[in-house]
Design a binder for these strands. Structure first.
Length: 784
DNA sequence: TAACAAGACCCCGAG
DNA sequence: GGTCTTGTTA
């Protein structure tokens, strides 16, 4: 053993790294060196003599896996680290499933359907079944099936499950079980799995083939899982199964950062883990090495409003840092404008102070939903500031890319129906809707894939004759030709040939309008990606058909994986979800408004479900804890939102209140704009107006639903109460919130003088600005 | 059958 | 505001 871990880690980290006698749960606060612990734990295991191939590490993104692997390689050497099994649940599981595919009725070439594929297929099935599309909303059905899969309910089980069935009946969608059944069957015929299947089939594989489970149990002597708070029931159960033999399992997570309940993540998996493994040892990492004290304190203050959490206190020994700047604008356009101006100021300042080679990459703009990115995108472009948007309509979602990939998919897996439908008539080859429908109908009736029909057109599909039949045969021959080339060409050569021969190149070569140019560039970019992939994998796997591996990899990319790892200088724009695990010196959290963050998705009543509100708060916590040096919170008084009333959607501008989370961070850690409290009463007489506070004795009633959870009500102050609450001058300290009879609420900035008669305080009042007051006379009341 | 235009519908978050 | 669907014409 060579590495001195004691030197590299703090005490709790060291203990967590070196404990390998049994199951362990590492509760790791934001920025507490979670990745560091995982990295060194794996290195430690390897240095202790365990072969890397016996270690399975499940991370949240492929990028995290890659980076961790590189860091481990630096500690123990690449020749060891390369044999680690490291990746996301989905990518590791797809690897296992490819190896064992035959056992569950698939081939190793199975396609992974992305969200669009599954959605399209379910839409088709609903149409074929002639269901009422108003009742059977594609999205709802997709979610329902996904929910079932995440609870390990197969289509067959669903049919026989009275709970699910009666629930569907009550909601007027009694035939969902049939949709699910058809969907599963069609996926099977297409030799395709969706994202949820990757998990569910691994579970079923292990359950139905104990010898397979035993093999992997034996193989993965050590199992490590990152971001455990975001695993779902299925993932928890698979991990439990795998770890049963050796019980060398270590999971890391932070319940305060659980933000994926919408895809089945169970915050309780952290607690459940302790029940599943009663001998589990608990480690807590509470020292934050990322952010200033102010940011950590504000984050603690915010999250303390959640009831549901594992107790822990995060602290930072870094500098105190600046207060978190809260900024308010009149609308979203100005919001974007002011953020970009602030970015320019930061960059200018940093350039003046020291040579900063990539100032923009230190900055991130985080938002709740992708649609918020547009205004920032426009503004940054206008100012010629380099930026990159992560997520949203990603590269691989673009039409031309999906079309090109569909060819490749069909070549690898000729049964892939969704790929078939995309390209049967693209580029246009005069195979129209009527002919297509005939092929698909026959295929569905015979429970085979459309390509099978095409390859047996003369015997099976007599309705299609003449030129239409010829065109179909030509198409079939073309795909067969590609397939036969699969063995002799690598992915790059083959895709290049496909693009040429299929007519895609010709189709986008034509006219030179902007749109076509962009498509051309995207196809070129795709070719670059494939080339890079071939070069990367060349020396690792000399195995046949690199195209299959490429397809498998791209379908499981995460938002953080795309375009990662370059050294360019740009401002990062992404959702808070996508920012998870990342850090930036400067973070702007934009759209800090009610109904944005927290986002309220229950259409009619603007009342937050407490559980959802807690998740929104965790989301805000994640955003805040991305910041290292400075954090800016930005909100607008008015916003344009989409409202959905009576099935009609329209865009409407309305008044919006600042997010309740601002207040919850603790005003002592914030630099609030003067207008902050004014904005509460905009266009809504029931909200409280700070200016009225000092004049009036009573608050207006608080009825507005979105306001219910806001600020703990401050009781009306009668003159008698005021006298009773007047603070002893010695209790007034910096950071404390006080109320003054005339100036209203404010925050004590500093206090000077020791004896009671001369003690003075500088106080920033929300409406009256900054004042220095002699405490003897000020009659301040401490609030909260 | 293809090309184009108008209209419908959509949106929270993601592998 | 963008994408998908439907309707119209040659």
């Amino acid at each position: 053993m060579s590495t001195d871990y004691k030197q590299l880690l703090n005490q709790p980290q060291y203990e967590a790294v070196t404990y390998n006698d049994g199951p362990s749960l590492i509760v790791a606060g934001a920025g507490s060196g979670k990745t560091r612990v995982l990295t060194y734990k794996i290195s430690y295991l390897i240095e202790s003599g365990f072969p890397a191939s016996s270690i399975l590490a499940l991370t949240f993104t492929n990028k995290a896996a890659r980076e961790m692997k590189e860091r481990i390689a630096k500690v123990v050497g690449e020749k060891f680290s390369r044999y680690l099994w490291m990746g996301t649940f989905h990518s590791i599981f797809s690897r296992i499933l490819r190896a064992e595919a035959e056992k569950i009725g698939f081939t190793r070439d199975f396609t992974i359907y992305d969200a669009a594929d599954s959605k399209g297929l379910i839409r088709d099935i609903i149409k074929e079944m002639e269901l009422d599309e108003k009742k059977y909303k594609v999205k709802d059905v997709v979610n329902r099936i996904s929910y079932a899969k995440n609870n390990i309910i197969t289509a067959e089980m669903y049919e026989n499950n009275s709970d699910y069935r009666s629930d569907d009946c009550n909601r007027g969608v009694a035939r969902i079980f049939e949709v699910y059944k058809n969907y599963s069957e069609r996926c099977r015929i297409s030799n395709a799995m969706d994202f949820d299947d990757l998990l569910m089939y691994v579970f079923l594989l292990f359950k139905e083939h104990p010898e397979v489970l035993e093999y992997y149990q034996q193989r993965f002597e050590h199992i490590l899982v990152d971001e455990y708070q975001d695993t779902n029931v299925l993932q928890h159960r698979i991990v439990t199964m795998l770890a049963q033999k050796y019980q060398h399992i270590s999971v890391v997570g932070d319940d305060a950062q659980s933000i994926y309940s919408f895809r089945g993540a169970e915050i309780d998996n952290m607690l459940k883990f302790q029940r599943t493994f009663p001998t589990c040892k608990l480690f807590k990492l509470e020292q934050n090495y990322r952010s200033t004290q102010t940011i950590v304190n504000a984050a603690n203050s915010l999250i303390s409003n959640n009831n549901h959490q594992i107790p822990k206190t995060l602290f930072s020994n870094l500098e105190l840092g600046d207060k978190i700047t809260v900024h308010c604008e009149d609308n979203e356009y100005l919001e974007a404008l002011s953020v970009v101006e602030q970015i320019k100021r930061i960059v200018r300042r940093n350039r003046e102070r020291f040579i900063d080679l990539c100032p923009y990459s230190k900055i991130a703009i985080l938002y709740r939903k992708n649609s918020q990115s547009r205004l920032y995108e426009e503004r940054l472009r206008k100012e010629s500031i380099p930026f990159k948007i992560f997520g949203g309509v990603s590269f691989y979602q673009r039409k031309e890319i999906k079309d090109a990939l569909a060819y490749m998919r069909l070549v690898i897996n000729s049964e892939d129906e969704e790929a078939f439908k995309r390209i049967i008539n693209y580029p246009a080859r005069k195979i129209g809707a009527v002919t297509q429908k005939k092929i698909l109908d026959v295929a569905h009736r015979n429970r085979v894939s459309p390509m099978y029909i095409i390859n047996h057109i003369d015997t099976l599909c007599v309705e299609i004759k003449g030129s239409a039949a010829q065109k179909i045969v030509d198409f079939g021959n073309m795909i067969s030709e590609f397939t036969s080339l699969c063995q002799e060409m690598d992915a790059f050569e083959l895709s290049n040939y496909i693009l040429e021969r299929s007519g895609i190149y010709a189709d986008i070569a034509g006219n030179d309008d902007e749109e076509n140019k962009e498509r051309r560039e995207n196809i070129e970019e795709l070719q670059n990606e494939i080339k890079a992939f071939c070069e990367k994998t060349e020396n690792i796997e000399s195995e046949s058909c690199s195209l299959r591996n490429f397809l498998s990899e791209v379908s499981l990319l995460t938002d953080q994986d795309v375009n990662a790892g370059d050294s360019e200088d740009y401002v990062s724009l992404m959702t808070i979800h996508a920012a998870k695990g990342l850090e930036f010196p400067y973070v702007f959290i934009v759209g800090m408004n009610e109904e944005v963050l927290p986002c309220c998705n229950s259409q009619t009543a603007k009342i937050y479900n407490p559980k959802e509100l807690e998740e929104e708060r965790r989301l805000c916590y994640v955003a805040l804890t991305r910041a290292q040096q400075a954090c800016y919170l930005v909100y607008s008084n008015r916003r344009r939102t989409f409202v959905d009333s009576n099935g009609k959607s329209c865009s409407e501008e309305s008044d919006t209140a600042p997010s309740c989370f601002i207040e919850e961070m603790g005003t002592q850690f914030l630099k609030l704009p003067n207008s902050y409290f004014k904005s509460f009463n905009r266009n809504n007489s029931t909200m409280f107006d700070f200016r009225q506070l000092s004049k009036k004795d009573n608050f207006p009633p608080r009825e507005h639903a979105s306001n219910i959870h806001r600020l703990k009500p401050i009781a009306a102050v009668t003159s008698q109460q005021t006298l009773n609450n007047i603070a002893d001058a010695s209790k007034i300290q910096a950071g404390i919130k006080v109320r003054h009879a005339n100036f209203g609420e404010g925050v004590v900035l500093s206090v000077e003088g020791t004896d009671a008669s001369s003690r003075k305080a500088v106080i920033r009042f929300q409406t009256a600005g900054e004042r220095t007051l002699l405490l003897k006379y000020a009659k301040l009341e401490i609030i909260q």
